[in-house]
Amino acid sequence: MPTKTIAGKTVEVDAEGFLVNPDDWNEDIAKELAKEEGINELTEMHWKVIHFMRQDYKERGQIPTIRRIKNAGGVPVQDLYKLFPDGPAKKAAKIAGLSKPQGCV
């Protein structure tokens, strides 16, 4: 696995830049990854999604789908597409330090 230095920390990433170990993640890394995805500033709503995804992953061992973020996380789909344009599931997972979602929905 290649490594990459993000926000001063050297971490393992996959070919598409997703963190390999979710535990390597911190909020500074999230801010850097967000910039790479074209999101210059993470707002309170972004953090709500990110923290929900990490918490849910920790509890269930699965990266939450958009439907789960909507139903269990309480973030409407429309907002998710505004917060993480052009691919909310993938982008949010990446910024949250999780691996690439493998589901079809």
Binding site: T65, R67, Q78, Y81, G103
Partner: peptide, 18 residues
């Protein structure tokens, strides 16, 4: 189980994606 919603919820979701 795969988080694929029933048709009515799915249509609402799809409309919300734009």
């Amino acid at each position: 189980k795969l988080d694929i919603p029933p048709i009515d919820e799915f249509l609402e979701m799809i409309a919300a994606t734009g």
